[in-house]
Write a protein that binds this DNA or RNA. Structure first.
Lengths: 389, 389
DNA sequence: ACAATAGTTTGTTTGTTCGATAAACTAATT
DNA sequence: AATTAGTTTATCGAACAAACAAACTATTGT
């Protein structure tokens, strides 16, 4: 029960102005007033503050509309650098972006499963972050913060990893570890949540108020955007759809149940399908994708199999959430239409809403960068929420 | 992109004050200031307005806390009457409540399936509403509005019933029909959504920010409360979970697919179970419930069967939404623990979150009144949102 | 050709309104 | 006398409308 006052009013309007500049840059004060409905003088005052905070820049003038030329306003991309980390199961991807979310440096390191003790992995992470920082550009405020997407259960508020089974991690206070080491604010979120935010800020979800981001990789997870914001659920566990039952007496799952979605439509399922169809080679997910695209029959059918079941899971979620859009991300959609066609077909058939209107199902626009860019957006969004910091 | 101004500030704070009085009545101005954090003088001013609008009453004084006695404030229950309608498949329930949501009159009429032409049914509805109005008490503003819960797809903004297959209705402009006839504001919503709002305002969901209301009757639907508000989805179809796939190659459904939840855990499924187990009698749902409670073996096992599968559906939703609470409503939970025990067992097994904390699964507190009371709350909540009307 | 001028658009300044707040007050009670 | 409840008064700060200044285009007249 948060009461309202003038501080709140100003915060909201300032955020609206900054957001408008971010989305429609270059834009003049007059135009901001027009599209937001705020008074000209109000816009002027708020823009002045944003200018002194160096979040916004005046960049020359635009074309005259029959009178005085408008002054172009733009985001100051060089206020600071943001680091976004995708902490994968067998890789770490680190990107450095400017304030506009443009990637200015990145590096991916691949890790063997062999040395996955938490300590070693965190050391690798710290080394990579250090290297990223050393490649920062000259900016007003330096490194603004670090966002990290993790494949596991996370307490976002406390920056705590409760459990990341695929990493073999339990109760790691990752935020305080990284904050102490680098002295900047750190934000930890689930990998699928980060992916959803990435697509919301920079990808296929920019214009959708409500959408689902399905991370289909080693496991299956969903990031849920409701009312333009990430929905985390009452305890931060929303979107844990890997163990959705889709087949009552289906394949037994490591969780003790049968017929979990993850057993039918993840990398795990794909590998099993390959193995069952007499494919003895040791292949990576990327090998199978390449083979499928090149026309290999078994690989294609593996993706069709996985796509069909993923379509069932997606249909179940569409029925429950009624989103405008579903984005399929992580590794599996790299197979393109081989996966997506089958997925769309099955989802369309089983989706109740499709009788009334069609739900768009798109592959990720950011591909393997979604999680890291979303992690960076976790940091950037803080600047937007409270420009005065 | 809604901008903020002082009007918004006042609206928010006034609503907070009114809500605080509603929830904690009797309460003094000083106490309101304490619990909300608003300034004493602000509270005084807002309360004064609420008093002149007759939404609030001064009702004597409370015990002294060592100084001047506090003046007790309370909701003015007699500002007006609200009508809530549950438009069932074979019944119509009409309730009349005061401003506090207390039922002061109600009537349920049972209808035969035989004459379910939309015209006849709407005539029956209008007659019942008329009778309800005639039983209104003396109030300041008379009938404030009518809320109607409908088993079908509804466009809430336009008050339009797009489709109600169980009623045989398509594209009925129910709001304008009823508004024209009775000359008061009318709100139409889906039956499960109304049930969820009912439980939120008056039932088991009062204290939960995020919960799911599962309406388990003729069909299966869900009302979703997120952030203390009903979530309707991008096109008002959120919660249409009847055709969630729970068994890949399961029972064929009227929708053309196989393994839909509704085929396993609705009244329909219960009746089928009874028939398959050599029960030739023509029974109503209430007969089966009574028999089950009385100890009849087949009836009990029918509820256990349905409960188990409903548990799977509930687990899938918990995994996706991570609510604090799930409320099971409509007819099936009238069987009590016979249904609920099996449901909880299965949901607990298949619910990913249960490894981290337990989700409460409760039967409806309002039982068959949830929908009608929620429909009334649709009207009442409008008074709260904009006290000046 | 070109200066004068009218009209338009952009952005700033000024004065007003309105809501929340703090502080000083009155009122009522132990 | 001390304490609690509620009101009054003065102040602050936000958005806003209106008036203004600045910068530009278009039109007109010579």
């Amino acid at each position: 029960m948060k009461t309202a006052d003038q501080v709140l009013v100003k915060q909201i309007n300032k955020m609206i102005v900054l957001n408008t500049i971010y989305k429609k840059r270059p834009i003049s004060r007059a135009e901001i007033a027009k599209v937001t409905g705020l008074n000209k003088s109000t816009v002027s005052a708020l823009v002045d503050e944003l200018l002194t905070e160096e979040l916004v820049l005046e960049m020359g003038t635009g074309e005259s509309q029959g009178g005085r030329k408008p002054v172009n306003l733009s985001i100051n991309k060089e206020v600071g650098n943001i680091i976004g980390i995708d902490l994968g199961v067998n890789y770490i991807l680190s990107i450095m972006t400017n304030f506009a979310g443009e990637i200015i440096w990145e590096k991916r390191i691949d890790l063997q499963h062999t040395h996955n003790s938490p300590g070693q992995r965190i050391a690798d992470l710290q080394t990579l972050i250090q290297e990223t920082i050393e490649n920062a550009s000259q900016t007003v405020r330096g490194i603004i913060g670090i966002g990290i997407g993790v494949p596991g259960i996370v307490n976002y508020e406390q920056g705590l990893i409760l459990s990341a089974p695929n990493l073999g991690w339990e109760n790691i206070e990752l935020r305080s570890i990284i904050e102490q080491k680098f002295g900047v604010p750190v934000f930890i979120d689930n990998e699928a949540n980060a992916g959803a935010i990435g697509e919301k800020w920079f990808g296929a979800g920019k214009r959708a108020d409500e959408f689902l981001y399905i991370s289909a990789g080693t496991g299956i997870g969903a990031g849920i955007i409701i009312n333009n914001e990430l929905y985390r659920g009452s305890r931060g566990l929303a979107g844990e759809i890997g163990h959705m039952t889709v087949s009552l007496d289906g394949i037994p799952c490591s969780c003790g149940n049968t017929g979990c979605l993850e057993e039918y439509s993840s990398e795990k399922a794909l590998f099993r399908y390959m193995k069952e169809h007499i494919c003895v080679e040791e292949l990576t997910i990327f090998n199978i994708i390449d083979n499928a695209i090149a026309g290999d029959d078994v690989s294609r059918r593996a993706f069709e199999y996985v796509g069909k079941y993923l379509g069932i899971g997606v249909a179940n979620l569409i029925n429950a959430f009624n989103p405008q859009l579903v984005i399929i991300g992580n590794s599996l959609p790299l197979a393109g239409d081989i996966l997506m066609d089958e997925l769309r077909k099955e989802a369309g058939k089983r989706c109740f809403a499709s009788k009334y209107f069609s739900v768009k199902i798109l592959p990720s626009q950011l591909n393997m960068h979604a999680c890291a860019m979303g992690a960076a957006a976790l940091v950037i969004s803080r600047l937007y929420a409270s420009p005065v910091s």
